[in-house]
């Protein structure tokens, strides 16, 4: 359980913004701005944040579906960051991704069986006939019956399509999966099916998940560790149970209190944040969050806090949280 499978150090992914300013040079968008992650084998690690915080870019940078700007990524003793095209392809057998939108992530002109068998054929892991058998088996595990594998994706509902997407990710027997908002496009009654499936498969296939989501309730259910991102940086990281019993960063607290109450008379002290998320092209000086923070001090405007451990496995990037916990 404690063997580290993925280690990310100081990962930065900047994009060049297309719109240039009057004075020529346009600022780059700091989608991911110095992130450290360490994920153990068998873990389900949650990455949480609002839209534009860089959580999806982080997931894609780790798989190098987006080229990171700098930093190091180490997967099971192999360097992902400097891997050449060929070794990257081999790595992708073991690192897979599940996408958010089950409607656009399946090629509409391929049959389901071909979609799921394709990774085996691309990696020359099986002959076409064998590949079909293996693909059928995985599809069956994911709840797509043998009889419908010759159909096209459009004949399936959203939940079933997401099962196909999961089967495609699993067919090469990967060890690590980035799941990018895997249920946010699905209906509530279907979400539970897919979340349960992901948990069953984790045991069956001994998988490690990086689970990206904006929904705290979902993350609480399926992860055992969690990191909260804000404007390209991790602001708090903890065991899921520790986090939900007492988040320390003011942003984490606000985020948790923003979740709609579960029952009408639940007494909820809500921290309503004012203002909007600043642009990642022009992040505030000092602590990224100080422009919306209800507690900020002069220090927060000047010095960006580091992510510092406050107790075992619990780190926070906030000047105030540090003080209060000491």
């Amino acid at each position: 359980m404690c063997e580290e499978i993925l280690s990310v150090k100081d990962l930065k992914t900047y994009f060049n913004s297309r719109t240039s300013t009057f004075l020529g040079k346009s600022p780059s968008i700091r989608a991911v701005d110095g992130i450290n992650l360490s994920i153990n084998a068998g873990e389900s690690f949650g990455l949480v944040g609002e839209s534009g915080c860089g959580k999806s870019t982080t997931g894609r940078s780790i798989l190098r579906l987006i080229q990171p700007t700098s930093g190091s990524i180490n997967f099971a003793g192999r360097d992902v960051m400097t891997a050449d095209k060929k070794s990257l392809r081999t790595l992708r057998r073991e690192m897979q991704m599940i996408f958010q939108d089950p409607y656009s992530s399946l090629n509409p002109r391929m049959r389901v069986l071909d979609i799921v068998a394709e990774p085996l054929i691309v990696h020359r892991l099986a002959k076409p006939s064998e590949a079909a058998t293996k693909a059928k088996k995985v599809l069956d595990h994911c709840g797509i019956p043998d009889g419908s594998v010759q159909r096209f994706p459009r004949e399936f509902s959203g939940g079933q399509r997401q099962r196909i997407v999961i089967a495609r990710a699993l067919v090469t027997r990967p060890r690590f999966i980035v799941a990018d908002e895997p249920v946010s496009a699905l209906d509530v009654s279907i979400q539970a099916q897919i979340l349960n499936l992901l948990q069953d498969l984790r045991d069956e296939y001994s998988l490690t998940y990086l689970f990206i989501s904006h929904d705290l309730a979902i993350v609480r259910t399926v992860t055992n560790r969690i990191a909260v991102m804000y404007l390209g940086k991790i602001v708090e990281q903890a065991d899921t149970s520790v986090f939900f019993s007492g988040p320390l960063h003011p942003y984490s607290r606000a985020l948790l209190s923003s979740v709609p109450r579960e029952t009408p008379d639940e007494d909820k002290k809500r921290i309503i944040l004012t203002g909007n998320i600043p642009s990642a092209a022009n992040p505030p000086k000092g602590c990224n969050f100080h422009t919306r923070c209800p507690l900020f001090t002069e220090k927060c405007k000047k010095i960006a806090p580091e992510l510092i451990p406050v107790s075992k496995g619990h780190s926070v990037a906030c000047h105030l949280a540090l003080k209060s916990s000491k």
């Binding site: 509902s157 939940g159 209906d187 349960n196």
Partner: peptide, 19 residues
């Protein structure tokens, strides 16, 4: 079926079938 901040345990009570 919905995951909440207070649900006990890791398994959700899914509704079988499709919408």
């Amino acid at each position: 079926a919905r995951p909440t901040l207070t649900t006990e345990g890791k398994r959700l009570r899914a509704i079988a079938g499709q919408v």
